[in-house]
Design a protein around this nucleic acid. Sequence first.
DNA 1: CGTTGCTTTGAACTAGCTCAAGAATGGTGG
DNA 2: CCACCATTCTTGAGCTAGTTCAAAGCAACG
Lengths: 220, 220
Amino acid sequence: MAICDALEDQNVDRLERIMTARSLQANEILVEEGDPRQKVFSLASGMLRLYSDLPDGRRQIAGFLLPGDYLGLADDDTYSQTAEAVIPSTLCAFPIRDMDALMEEFPRLKDRLHVMTRTALKQARNSQMVLGRLAPVEKVASFLLMLSARLEEHGQSTDPLPLVMTRTDIADYLGLTIETVSRSFTKLRMQGLIRLPDSHLVEIVNRRALIAVAGLDLPA
Amino acid sequence: MAICDALEDQNVDRLERIMTARSLQANEILVEEGDPRQKVFSLASGMLRLYSDLPDGRRQIAGFLLPGDYLGLADDDTYSQTAEAVIPSTLCAFPIRDMDALMEEFPRLKDRLHVMTRTALKQARNSQMVLGRLAPVEKVASFLLMLSARLEEHGQSTDPLPLVMTRTDIADYLGLTIETVSRSFTKLRMQGLIRLPDSHLVEIVNRRALIAVAGLDLPA
DNA sequence: CGTTGCTTTGAACTAGCTCAAGAATGGTGG
DNA sequence: CCACCATTCTTGAGCTAGTTCAAAGCAACG
């Protein structure tokens, strides 16, 4: 539990005491953009998509939350995006009142939060480059590398890379249509850079070449 | 001076004592992506562009810094983007060693920094939506509204909106080519939403319609 | 089995890009 | 002060990559 690192052992239970559990089915909405922010969440298992909608239905996914990630830390009075479960998920919920109090008491906890906000900012900046300047195949390649790197960080299996989200999610994350995403996968497969045992499992055959296609992004 | 708000009057001079001035010509580079982070900067006057390059020369501008904005706050050991002057600019530079020490001493200063990081994150998230899902005219419309809103916040003139950056900058910010940016301006002008006394001055004639074109973005 | 939902593939279209040429602006030096 | 050059911006014409529209696989589920 990432933020617990900042608390002495005897104080971890302080967190646990104010915490409540929550579980979500696939595609169940946790919070909606504009809802009053009353809780901060930590994802225990599963995956969440974070997105905004335009009035006409266009959708932009800002990112995917993996176990250990937090939600609602950088918002003010209302949530700035909608959070929805990609697959069945479980979370811990902390009332912000108690959370704020705890942060006043333990400055290191606040520091930890700041670090997480900075990480989110770095990811968003990288995403700006991907969305603004990469071609579709490059976007998909960099998406696969990014996901693989993040899953690894979070200690999850990664050899056959599990793509739990749908093509629509990937498209809405990369600013493409599902057809273009699908065709990009096919291109990468044809070039022998990846294999697709099934549409939700990716084997990275030639990582070096995949990095080259992605046009040099963070995942070292 | 935004961050000074967090310091008692008698301590502001502590900041001033560790601060050094710096001035830049147009297009002069302040720091480059990957440089060791030794200083934090505050823009006093002018404008900076913050960007990353791809090996093949493609460029993505993450944002523009206005007077009062800070640079290098959210980075770790190295700067994560290149910062370059759009027009002649002046800055205050604070060595991070001293800055860190000051932050330990004045927690409110740290809070203030966290708020600024969160603001940057919100802007980046909005930018993701713009880059990923808006059509060119929508992008340009939302850019004009965003700039107008920010200049107003910073107390700068905004009636004839000064576009000090080049079309290339706008293109690299919005993920377009300069030609498409130019054509989008022309479209907005033809529809009577804006006037262009000259290419670096925009008069917003019909703000309501411009907001509608932008497809509902933050600028209320 | 027959739905239903997701993915892939095909074919046609079109929005935005590339390439190319003018127009406008600003700075420089004669 | 004006002519000249360099740079930026605009406009045009054609092309191409990615979208749209449509249909066919495929898998899971009842």
